[in-house]
Amino acid sequence: MQSSPSTARSEAHRKAFDVVGLYGDPSVAWSIMLVAELHAPGSPDDYRAGLAALVAKSPDCGPPPSWDVVDEDAWQAQLHTMGTRLYVETEPLVRGASTADGRFVAVAAHHGVVDGLGLLALMGALTGEDLRSGVRGVDPSSADRSSFLGNAVKHVGSALVRPPRRFRAVDPDKSRAGEWLVARNLPKGIDSSRLIAASCRALEQWGATGGRRNPVAVAVGASRRSGDAPAPDRDTVLLRLVGSDFTDPVTVRNQLRAATPEPDSPTTSAGGIGPLVAKALAGRLGSTVLVSNLGIIEGSQRIERLWLYPAVNGPCGVAVGSLTVDGKATLTVRVARRDFSSAAAERLTETFVQAIESVSAQQRAR
């Protein structure tokens, strides 16, 4: 028997909100977003129909997606709205938008609904293409068999004693809501080990809170499945590198190969205790930086560039996204407005770009 629309909607929202987990930051949107510039634009109506059709086939995506069409001069404001506004039970879990001329399109979704590959599937439905990623899935047999609760207790204990280093806040203002979404084009693609090494070099160049006693904690977004046939679902895993120095890409590559995925998030919020714990310890939980790399995207004849915006959380949290399409690589940096001014977010992004150049130059010299 099929569920009524209201029941299906409630269940989809429950799953999405609960999957954030025991120590997820309840104050952020947990929204991930993919933005495309097309050299062969289509009709906004066709974009909307393609996205809605795939969401309709995917019960966990919830109700029909929202859709907005704006002029190009309002595009950046639209991206901020759809990418950072909190999800509530009376609104869709998937959001889409385009410029009136069809040149730019975007899709955002709650991270409890899809992961990065799921987002790629939604973008493919929107543009009418079978987009694929070159990323390889994490071997399920390597997963940490300990319970999520036990692992969460371990993280809480570590956070109380030695919270991770953070990027130093610049011009913070707690009255500012939302996040800064900053994008740059890169001269060439970058693999995950070099992106992580560059992120840690950026931390050194920018300045960090905490001392050498406080570890660097890098969260790395990954998936159990490969990117050969993305689907609008969530099969994500989180790799976590914790140590004193991850600035060398060779060392990082070895650490990634040896890393054990974090245990799965629970399917409930622990009777409401999880969000309360997360809120009480918000100043100590989270990671130094979250890195998400979708690799090389194939299957498009229309897309000029793509930008991936992973979710950011935690105090002075920084999320970095990268991918390459048609030989064109991009970088995004996402930070909370409460921790950085607009100018500081731009400078921080330039610091990441310089760090990537440094890592690439070192690799060429070897």
Rank of each mutant, 00 (worst) to 15 (best):
residue 116 G to N: 02
residue 286 G to E: 06
residue 229 A to Q: 13
residue 249 P to S: 08
residue 133 S to V: 13
residue 2 Q to F: 11
residue 146 S to R: 14
residue 282 A to P: 05
residue 240 R to P: 00
residue 206 W to P: 07
residue 101 D to K: 05
residue 333 V to M: 01
residue 153 V to H: 07
residue 363 Q to L: 12
residue 33 M to S: 09
residue 239 L to W: 08
residue 235 D to F: 03
residue 280 A to W: 13
residue 37 E to Y: 10
residue 340 F to C: 01
residue 227 G to R: 10
residue 100 A to F: 09
residue 90 T to E: 07
residue 179 E to D: 15
residue 129 E to R: 03
residue 327 G to C: 12
residue 137 G to W: 00
residue 165 R to Q: 13
residue 260 T to H: 07
residue 4 S to N: 09
residue 61 C to V: 00
residue 165 R to F: 09
residue 4 S to R: 10
residue 168 R to F: 03
residue 302 R to S: 15
residue 154 K to Q: 13
residue 107 V to C: 05
residue 326 D to K: 11
residue 311 A to C: 05
residue 145 R to E: 15
residue 76 Q to G: 10
residue 77 A to G: 13
residue 200 C to T: 05
residue 120 L to N: 09
residue 281 L to F: 12
residue 315 P to A: 12
residue 69 V to E: 07
residue 246 F to H: 05
residue 50 G to E: 02
residue 248 D to P: 06
residue 251 T to N: 00
residue 267 T to L: 12
residue 345 A to S: 08
residue 34 L to N: 09
residue 195 L to E: 11
residue 194 R to K: 14
residue 312 V to Q: 06
residue 300 S to L: 12
residue 323 L to Y: 01
residue 127 T to G: 07
residue 267 T to P: 07
residue 104 F to K: 02
residue 286 G to M: 02
residue 202 A to R: 08
residue 54 L to M: 15
residue 150 G to V: 10
residue 346 E to P: 01
residue 35 V to K: 07
residue 44 P to L: 00
residue 258 A to L: 04
residue 2 Q to S: 13
residue 62 G to Q: 03
residue 219 A to Q: 03
residue 51 L to P: 00
residue 303 I to A: 13
residue 187 P to T: 13
residue 193 S to C: 15
residue 1 M to Q: 12
residue 342 S to T: 08
residue 214 N to V: 01
residue 176 R to W: 12
residue 76 Q to A: 12
residue 255 Q to K: 00
residue 326 D to N: 15
residue 212 R to P: 08
residue 286 G to P: 01
residue 136 R to H: 15
residue 92 P to V: 00
residue 325 V to Y: 02
residue 326 D to L: 10
residue 209 T to W: 00
residue 149 L to K: 03
residue 234 R to S: 06
residue 325 V to K: 01
residue 309 Y to T: 04
residue 192 S to L: 15
residue 260 T to N: 04
residue 90 T to R: 02
residue 248 D to L: 00
residue 87 Y to P: 01
residue 294 L to A: 10
residue 132 R to M: 14
residue 319 A to Q: 06
residue 129 E to G: 06
residue 50 G to Y: 08
residue 81 T to M: 02
residue 25 D to S: 08
residue 11 E to H: 10
residue 116 G to E: 07
residue 64 P to I: 05
residue 167 F to T: 07
residue 133 S to I: 11
residue 302 R to D: 15
residue 3 S to R: 15
residue 294 L to I: 07
residue 31 S to E: 03
residue 60 D to N: 11
residue 69 V to G: 05
residue 11 E to V: 09
residue 360 S to A: 15
residue 229 A to V: 09
residue 288 T to N: 06
residue 202 A to W: 11
residue 205 Q to E: 15
residue 179 E to V: 13
residue 57 K to L: 12
residue 341 S to P: 03
residue 134 G to T: 15
residue 1 M to F: 09
residue 16 A to S: 07
residue 73 D to Y: 06
residue 214 N to H: 12
residue 285 L to G: 02
residue 321 G to D: 06
residue 76 Q to L: 09
residue 57 K to P: 04
residue 206 W to Q: 02
residue 200 C to E: 08
residue 130 D to E: 14
residue 327 G to V: 12
residue 226 S to T: 07
residue 37 E to V: 03
residue 319 A to P: 04
residue 149 L to S: 03
residue 16 A to N: 02
residue 86 L to S: 03
residue 94 V to Y: 00
residue 347 R to I: 07
residue 12 A to I: 05
residue 270 A to S: 04
residue 294 L to R: 08
residue 151 N to D: 14
residue 320 V to D: 08
